[in-house]
């Protein structure tokens, strides 16, 4: 079952494939702009299931919109009313989904590595919509699409990721994808949120901004993942804000060409001021839009990989 196309982590996808996915994202975006939608609605009736075992709004809706645009037959499974939850029945339930004719399963799971555990057992193609604190590869793809759209080139870009890195699956995917394309990555946050171990992933770890902001081309702000924090090590939110938040003043110190991203949801007044969110160079709404095309590109790539194969 090794040759089944999955999209479960950035770590195992090579740079050429990601470059292809970026191009395809731009292609799908262009077809929307030119109203050439019919030409891409080509997976009529192919089964795709969305299985979100953790709360999600924008990611779930985005995946669904992407699937709709490609005319998949979409099923959404509600973990609250379905027997398919977790534990020892997890694998068996995916085998059932295969027999029900689904070809792609988009899965969000609370456990890091849940999809890696599944992969050897299934012939359904898995798309990771976030597994624990591990990875969120489609978010990294749409971040890359958004950055490339504005900056043109990724090589040599200086990118700062700020906030709760240790619990962020977005940060882990972003770090790996940016490193693949030759960007320089700076991780900024208090030591409770980013450890020196991250330097072994090829990043620079900073516990305060110092003079770094004005040298960055891209800043990715992250929210504090309060739902994953059992013991809160922060002195106070005002202390955090004072030292790490993207205030209007800090935003002003960025280089004029620099852009800012946030994967959402934004905790306004904590990691970012509301005024900053509405700045032109803050691209969080563009990220939401590009998310649909990036996910279309992922589905399309998987279906191309499955073409003419019998599983």
């Amino acid at each position: 079952m090794n040759n089944i196309p999955h999209f479960v982590d950035i770590a195992s996808i090579n740079q050429d494939t990601i470059a292809y996915l970026i191009d395809r994202s731009f292609f799908f975006k262009s077809t929307q702009k030119t109203h050439d939608r019919d030409s891409i609605a080509k997976y009529n009736g192919k089964g795709l299931i969305l299985l979100f075992l953790e709360p999600s709004t924008r990611t779930r809706v985005s995946f669904r919109r992407a699937a709709l645009k490609l005319a998949f037959d979409i099923q959404m499974l509600d973990p609250n009313t379905s027997s398919l939850i977790k534990g020892e029945k997890f694998v068996e339930n995916f085998l059932n989904l295969e027999k029900l004719g689904f070809e792609i399963a988009v899965v969000r799971h609370a456990r890091s590595g849940a999809l890696h555990f599944l992969k050897p057992f299934v012939t359904i193609s898995l798309v990771n919509a976030g597994d624990g604190c591990h990875e969120h590869p489609s978010q990294a793809l749409l971040d890359l699409v958004t950055i490339k759209e504005k900056m043109g080139n990724l090589k040599g870009l200086r990118v700062g990721i700020v906030g709760d890195i240790i619990r962020s699956r977005v940060a882990r995917s972003d770090i790996q994808v940016l490193k693949k394309f030759g960007s320089e990555v700076f991780l900024i946050g208090p030591p409770h949120f980013v450890t020196k171990a991250f330097e072994s992933l090829g990043t620079n770890v900073l516990y305060e901004y110092g003079d770094i902001l004005k040298t960055l081309d891209v800043v990715i702000m992250l929210r504090i993942q309060t739902e994953r924090i059992e013991y809160d090590p922060l002195l106070s939110l005002s202390w955090y804000r004072e030292n790490y938040a993207m205030t209007l003043e800090r935003f002003g110190s960025l280089s004029t060409h620099a852009i800012m991203l946030h994967p959402g949801p934004v905790s306004l007044g904590v990691e970012m001021d509301e005024e900053v969110l509405h700045e032109k160079r803050c691209l969080s709404y563009e990220q939401v839009e590009n998310g649909i095309y990036a996910r279309m590109a992922v589905f399309d790539w998987i279906m191309q990989g499955r073409k003419n194969k019998c599983y």
Binding site: A11, S112, G113, D131, G132, C133, H134, E135, I166, R169, R172, T195, A197, F198, S200, L201
Partner: peptide, 12 residues
């Protein structure tokens, strides 16, 4: 270990 793999795999 709380090192490179923990950082990579997203497990404290």
């Amino acid at each position: 270990n709380d090192g490179i793999m923990a950082a990579k795999l997203g497990i404290e």
